[in-house]
Simulated assay, not measured.
Amino acid sequence: MLQLNIHDETSRLKAVVLGIAENNGPTPTAEEAYDPKSLEHIKAGTYPVEADMIAEMEAFNQVFQKYDVKVYRPEIIENYNQIFTRDIGFVIDDIFIKANILPDRERELDAIQYVIDQMNPQKVVRPPEEVHIEGGDVMLWNNHIFIGTYKGSDYKEYITARTNLAGVNYIKKLFPTKIVKEFDLVKSKIEPRDNALHLDCCFQPVGKNKGIIYKSGFREEADYMYLVKLFGKENLFHIEREEMYHMNSNVFSIAPDVVVSEKNFIRLNNWLKKNGFIVEEIPYAEISKQEGLLRCSTLPLIRE
């Protein structure tokens, strides 16, 4: 039986589901793109090839092995993108919440059923159909649950709007003792530099009291200020528009002092090192072309 335990983003990791890039399928057509960044690379002929993505994910896997983390991988579905396990479910405390993802991605949950089978069935929940919520929008920090959402009346028209207010309210009901705070995110179907697909595209805590943040990812300045007040401006590393585009806030913590980061994030990695973090730098630039990075490819199950 898996004893699920996730209370924050940075405690020492013990078990994780890492996505998989094998049998990833052909380059999608422009019509099939789920996000503006993939679309940009499909049109430019620079969409990532499978061999490169497998190599990048293996580098990530090696870091987990180095830190003695138990790694589960999805079962392979033929010709199918299974890199971003963060979208399909997430753990809060000891509860596994299945995400209601885009309907054609339902099979990704089946591919980790063997992991779900090891959980206490009473601790596995599935929200009702009208609830949209994806793991990239859900972030735990002490007694807080931060949730990215989109409050625009045109929500339905945005395939990039992944978590709705029903999703926020569902989590509030499930965890009545926690402070649940939603953040209204900037969305774009056409310009990846102005699209915060999930909350972890414009914010993420690191260590015990620090964070990476992109101010323009928030539709309301008040939401950005909430985090500044909570963390202290001096504890936040502010990324720029181009750094947001390359997903600088989508790193992944293995421990309070260990962060896995993309090797090209020079400015961020220097800041992390200067603040006492061990930075495990790996190549992940090809995978980032699909508007997802390190945090997106992980589904943490147990932290200390």
Results as ranks from 00 to 15, higher is better:
M1F: 15
L2A: 07
L2Q: 07
Q3L: 10
I6N: 01
H7W: 02
S11T: 05
L13N: 04
A15N: 01
I20H: 14
N24P: 15
G25H: 07
T29A: 13
E31Y: 12
E31V: 15
D35W: 06
D35G: 09
K37D: 03
S38F: 08
S38G: 09
H41P: 08
K43V: 14
G45V: 05
V49F: 14
I54E: 06
I54Y: 12
F60E: 02
F60S: 03
F60T: 02
N61M: 08
Q62F: 14
F64R: 05
Y67W: 08
Y67M: 10
V71Q: 12
V71S: 15
E75K: 14
E78K: 15
N79E: 09
N79K: 11
N81H: 15
N81D: 13
I83M: 12
F84Y: 05
T85H: 10
D87K: 00
G89M: 01
G89L: 01
I92Y: 00
I95L: 05
I97M: 01
N100V: 02
I101A: 10
D104I: 14
R105S: 11
R105H: 13
R105Q: 11
R107T: 15
R107N: 14
R107W: 15
R107P: 14
D110C: 11
I112E: 02
V115N: 04
V115K: 03
M119T: 04
K123D: 00
K123G: 01
V125T: 05
E130L: 13
V131F: 13
H132R: 06
H132C: 05
G136T: 00
D137E: 01
I145K: 00
I145Y: 00
I145H: 00
G148L: 00
S153C: 13
T160M: 03
T160G: 03
N164A: 03
N164E: 01
N169V: 10
K173M: 13
K173S: 11
L174P: 04
L174R: 05
K178M: 09
K181Y: 05
F183K: 00
F183M: 02
L185S: 01
K187D: 03
D194F: 12
A196E: 09
H198F: 04
L199K: 00
L199I: 00
C202F: 02
P205E: 02
G207V: 07
K208M: 12
N209W: 06
G211Q: 01
I212Q: 02
E220H: 13
A222M: 10
M225K: 15
M225C: 14
V228D: 03
V228R: 05
K229H: 14
E234L: 09
E234K: 07
E234D: 10
F237C: 07
F237Q: 05
H238Y: 07
I239R: 06
I239Q: 08
R241K: 06
M244T: 10
Y245F: 06
H246E: 11
N248W: 13
N248R: 11
V251W: 02
P256W: 08
P256Q: 13
S261C: 13
K263N: 15
K263R: 15
F265W: 03
N269P: 10
N270E: 14
W271T: 09
L272C: 03
K273N: 13
N275Q: 14
E280M: 11
E280F: 07
P283H: 09
P283Q: 07
A285E: 12
K289Y: 11
Q290W: 13
C296F: 06
T298N: 08
T298H: 09
T298M: 11
L301F: 03
L301D: 02
L301P: 02
